[in-house]
Write a protein that binds this DNA or RNA. Structure first.
Lengths: 330, 330
DNA sequence: TATGATAATGTAAGCGCTATCATTCGAAAA
DNA sequence: TTTTCGAATGATAGCGCTTACATTATCATA
């Protein structure tokens, strides 16, 4: 095993200077950096992250807070986060927002270096936590809109743009009688998607008044229930659900009642959740690059911890329309 | 932050003795253990795993080797492994068997404390790796049958029993014309399931000669292909695919061709993969407790590393029949 | 050439543990 | 009482890094 000391010896500099090179500090002469890097290369040096963490007094852990939906739903996000974390020997502790006290404990017992938070509603709970976090001046990054328009950096997905694309697609397919299944009225993502969808339709000259919007809650059950109520008597060309899970409920109802998708009704969702392509028929949806979002969130919180000023306050990921069989081909 | 030293001071013993208590060594007087534990409790002491790892010279990393199927498939397994790993500040490095050289590098560069291996075929590759592992006398644990009946401990699932249960269920449902879609002929899991299925049918007095077995390869595409060939002209009551992925292919063909499941044909798979319940219709299958298997594998490799002799050479998990709508209710 | 000021590098004290070796304790044997 | 020898505990040197703080090199200015 090659240690920092070996590099120091080989290059003729002190351990401190080698350490500076590893940590990319500025006060080292470029020439020296070259030499030391050459030594590192030559010896195949790899820093021991454990020693690094111990010495620098970091916990090398960050907390990930998620809404308490099936965690399976966040698989890709978590994988993105973890893949980055592992490279730098960071540890992730996943907690659910419903048990916010557990997350708060993490702060009190000094267990984490920062937070990655994904929330959808639960404002009071988040508020409680944010106060603690701010008091300790702890690094935070949001996935999705930050809480209360706080200044905290965030990684967000272009909900508006994604729904807008879907609107254009729907219009191009000549769907004119459309049912839009929203999430809860106070859900940020849902509202953005509603806004984008309407905007897209308007741009096409579609009469938005004929759009039927029904409030759902992002669950499969609610999707099923709404489909039952609205699809029974036909009359709709297409359904756009604000997330894949409700779209799944819609599909379930249609399948059970032998209403042919997409021949009779087309269905689309939003998220490209892991199950979307396995549904019957495979679901047309808007893909959020969850894996990349996770990676970016982790990279950014790491930067914030290291006081790297290059973190953008808002990183926006664009979405991609994924066309599958649940929408008619004409 | 409470350190070991604080506990030592509070209890009046030396750091060494406190360390002994933490590591559950035997040479400490029971009375002393009590006192020290009381101090730890009182101060709320939590060992710093980083320091521990650094000091003891462990890498605190273990390599997880998986066949290169969609990793999404192994989500639950990996989560089980990781959840245990995280508690003890272990790091997991996931490598795919197809790139076995990467795994071998891990040994040469002294990066891991041990291996968790899940293989299905690829004997030559595993053989290559095992030689290296054995030479270094490195801890290994297998998920599924160990390689070449080696003595290495393993965590396995009761494939035979699971398939047997399915056979009993099929028989009880009065399916008499059955298609069995296997995996590759040299796949261990597939063969065990075939064996168990036949055994179960025999036990019911079923004429096994009327069972139609077709070799597949565990992929969705092959499942689809086989269904196309065999289901076109009807005549089958049910299909049992040796894994959920091929079952998905079968379902896809049946749905596309409006062959009603389960009214006309019942379908079952094996694995209870993450997508099984979202298929249409939701798939009857055999659940393998992947999460628990992952947890156990990790716990066991940890024990082996610590030279804890209590590791069973073979830990068998039983399976559970999961009845969903893809099999007729009669 | 002497003088600061600043840039570049070095020295060494930890970070919180483990593990080796040394020391002390306590009870049975002499 | 003294001796002996495990059993129990203590002292301490690291593990591989980071990071004050101290020191030296460099160079424009007086």
């Amino acid at each position: 095993m090659v240690r920092l000391e070996d590099v120091a010896e080989d290059s003729g500099f002190s351990r401190a200077t080698v350490s500076r090179v590893i940590n990319e500090e500025s006060k080292v002469k470029p020439e020296t950096v070259e030499k030391i890097k050459a030594s590192m290369e030559k010896l195949g040096y790899r820093p021991n992250m454990l020693a690094r963490a111990l010495s620098s007094g970091k916990k090398n852990s960050i907390a990930v807070l998620l809404p308490d939906v099936t965690t399976l739903y966040y698989t890709r996000l978590l994988r993105g986060i973890n893949d980055v974390a592992q490279d730098v020997y960071y540890h992730t502790i996943v907690k659910s927002i419903s048990k916010i006290e557990n997350a708060a404990d993490l702060i009190d017992s000094n267990m984490v270096d920062g937070f990655i938070i994904r929330h959808s509603r639960s404002f009071e709970k988040i508020d409680f936590l944010m106060k603690k976090i701010n008091k300790k001046n702890m690094p935070v990054i949001f996935i999705g809109r930050p809480f209360n328009d706080s200044e905290s950096p965030s990684v967000i997905v272009d909900n508006v743009g994604g729904a807008r694309k879907m609107a254009h697609y729907f219009f191009s397919k000549n769907y004119r009688k459309i049912l839009f299944v929203t999430g809860k009225n106070d859900n940020i993502d849902s509202n953005d998607r509603k806004y984008g969808f309407r905007m897209g339709l308007l741009e096409c000259g579609f009469d938005v008044n004929s759009l039927v919007e029904v409030e759902g809650d992002f669950t499969r059950e609610k999707g099923y229930e709404i489909a039952k109520k609205y699809m029974k008597n036909g009359g709709f060309d297409a359904v756009f659900a604000a997330n894949d899970e409700s779209a799944m409920g819609v599909l379930l109802y249609l399948n059970e009642n032998s209403i042919k998708v997409p021949e009779e009704v087309s269905v689309a969702g939003f998220d490209d959740a892991f199950f979307a392509e396995y549904l019957w028929p495979p679901l047309t949806t808007v893909r959020q690059p969850m894996y990349e979002i996770g990676q970016t969130a982790m990279k950014n919180i790491l930067k914030i911890i290291d006081r790297d000023p290059s973190v953008k306050n808002e990183t926006i990921f664009s979405t991609e329309l994924v066309i599958r069989k649940s929408c008619s081909r004409e």
